[in-house]
Design a protein around this nucleic acid. Structure first.
Lengths: 214, 214
DNA sequence: AACATTTTAGGACAAGTGTACAATATTGGA
DNA sequence: TCCAATATTGTACACTTGTCCTAAAATGTT
């Protein structure tokens, strides 16, 4: 009694051309999602953008659900990878690493890709369980990285406090997406938000634990 | 040569029953949007939820665009009204008023209405000019209220600094929506975020202006 | 060169979408 | 009570959506 649950099927390419087509599909889907929003993310739009026919698209992704899954995973992992790269390239000081991450996350808001993608993701996550889990994992990884740095900056902090500080930092930055992001009317203030965030977060970490046990 | 531009038409009811129907439509639309997301916000779903037929719906809203406009305006204004009410009911101290607003905004995240509505709004605003303008006006009003309180707390602050602080506060709180909101996996930490936000924001205001002119 | 496998194209389908319109029912003032 | 204005229904249309299926083309190995 195996294979009863075969809801979403994504074919794996064998020839090079097939793999190229899959890449083209995912790239095209990303572009459509970012440029036109999820409402316009239709199989025919994706196929047109990828330069293929719908029949070919459904050969690799017989479900739109499967396509969306691969698409979201690819985009989300690209952000996590970039975060890892930032930390590794920032020396050994946890303060410096922390500031580097904060600055990367905020400066990244200048990219329309980021500004357009994440609100779509958040809206999807509200009514799609799989998207919600995927998103939770991604942000959990981000918070884990932040928490590690917070603990390194202020070692006397408890796990719980450090994790809450990481959550607060993550929230504060994500919230800028709709206002100081690419094309938004407060984009002028992005630099100011970056400085405000860095000083505010570092100070919050430094002085935490003074009046701790509530 | 008048009336060339009659894109969106919304009929005004004359009888009481007509007005009741309009209210039912908007309430139904809000419920569908919040419970099932914009993807499922279809004229037939709205009509079913309102207990009327689609033909009746299109009698009052010949365009889906017009319906969406009224819906978003109604919801957004309800939040602004509630904010005004909070400030008025919090005495004269700007600090107390500021904390009251912060606490209201964060506690409101316990409501699924809020947690589900806003990401849909943000996603819509990315590709719909009218929604974007509506949203900008709403948040501008929120920031204006916050800025006024910031200036009252720290009068020696310049308009620019106060406005940037208000923006930072607004961003930080909105960003919590996807994480500590209703049903989210960090909802346990909502209280902690509230306390963290209040102390962090107040301190940020108090110490601002020390190394100001950049 | 032959050929099984993989890839692509094209057409078809049912279901769902927003919108339009004529016919019927209801309302409230004369 | 009557009746014009308003409200509601039911049906129809053109269009888009995801999905399915068959035939043709391309691929790489033998």
């Amino acid at each position: 009694m195996q294979g009863t649950r075969q809801k979403s099927r994504a074919r794996t390419a064998t020839y090079e051309k097939g793999q190229a087509t899959i890449n083209a599909i995912l790239d095209a889907a990303a572009e459509v999602l970012i440029d036109q929003g999820y409402k316009k993310l239709t199989l025919r739009q994706i196929a047109m953008q990828a330069g293929i026919k719908v029949g070919n698209l459904t050969y690799y992704y017989s479900n739109k659900e499967a396509l969306l899954k691969d698409l979201l995973e690819k985009i989300l992992f690209s952000y996590l990878d970039e975060m890892d790269r930032i930390v590794e390239a920032s020396g050994d000081s946890p303060q410096v690493q922390f500031v580097a991450i904060i600055e990367y996350l905020i400066e990244d808001l200048h990219s329309q890709r980021t500004t357009h993608f994440f609100p779509e993701l958040w809206a999807l996550a509200n009514h799609d369980t799989h998207t919600s889990e995927l998103m939770d994992n991604m942000y959990a990884a981000e918070r884990a990285a932040l928490q590690k740095l917070v603990e390194a900056i202020k070692p006397e902090l408890g796990k719980r406090q450090a994790s809450q500080l990481a959550l607060f930092v993550s929230c504060s930055i994500e919230g800028m997406t709709m206002f100081v992001g690419a094309g938004k009317n407060q984009e002028d203030n992005l630099q100011a938000m970056k400085e405000l965030a860095c000083t505010s977060f570092l100070q919050l970490i430094e002085q935490a634990g003074e009046e701790s046990h509530t």
